[in-house]
Amino acid sequence: MTTDLQSTQPKTVDPYGKATPDLSTPRSRSIAGNLVRQRIRSVVKHLALIGLSLIMIYPLIWLLISSMKPNEQIFTDLSIFTTDLSLENYAHGWNAQLFPFHVYLINSSILVLGAIIGNLISCSMAAYAFARLDFRFRTLTFALMLGTILLPFHVVLVPQFILFRELGWLDTFLPLVVPKFLATEAFFIFLMVQFIRSLPNELYEAARIDGAGHFRQFVQITLPLMIPALATTTIFTFIWTWADFFGPLLYLRSPENYTVSQALTGFIDAQSTSNYGAMFAMSVVSLIPLFIAFLIGQKFLVKGFAKSGIK
């Protein structure tokens, strides 16, 4: 019995990883009991987490399976275990709207690409200034920049709309892309500031001694070293822009300019035809890029998020 327990000892998962049982204390006689308890605790914990994982992920799996089921089966048979799967809904959904779905995919991609380039350039410039330069009003502007993270954008919504209307930019991608080139996403500036601050000062001193100005310090030292922060920005921008609905709803009016998000709402409006299969299929199509971005960028997402929130 004892040997049995000892052989399992290295496998037990101690949540704090450090607490090795101290055999010299008077408590040592209860060590066998402790191990059993730890084992049980670990099993219960994993069961709870697996249960929660299933609840979290089940709707997404159901969506995926339902998108491959014949329409009449989606709601009569709610299980995800079926062999009767086909891609017919995808072919159907692709052409169910005014334009084939790739038009919307291309529109969304253009917006995403523009937003990424804009954010990368403008936010990294501002971040470099905040983190490395000594200029007047730096503290003030930094505080204001942080303040804009907390400001609800509804307060600028109507005037911005009027502005873009005056400029004749309605029903173009400009209102959704141009602001990104002017560093309006303060969240990313903050993320990059945090990152640049952590770079060793010696590098910059060496560069200065070699006669590098701020432009070269920015392009040749800062940018290459902050690639992880740039990657985080890229992936977050990708995900947020791809999933954005409010911006396109405001500014894109004609169906040939619609993004994927807008095209999907078309399925709801037309639900009298109750083509659920097609709607689910195109929903899946719209989620695939998000999922791929998540898989590729997981490491950066987790780190970036952590960095933005933490000491």
Partner: peptide, 22 residues
């Protein structure tokens, strides 16, 4: 301040955005 000029240049997109869009 050491870098007033460079600061202004690097901050220009943000300053513009801040006044025009906020």
């Amino acid at each position: 301040y050491r870098d007033n000029k460079a600061g202004f240049v690097f901050m220009l997109p943000w300053i513009t955005g801040f006044f025009v869009f906020t």
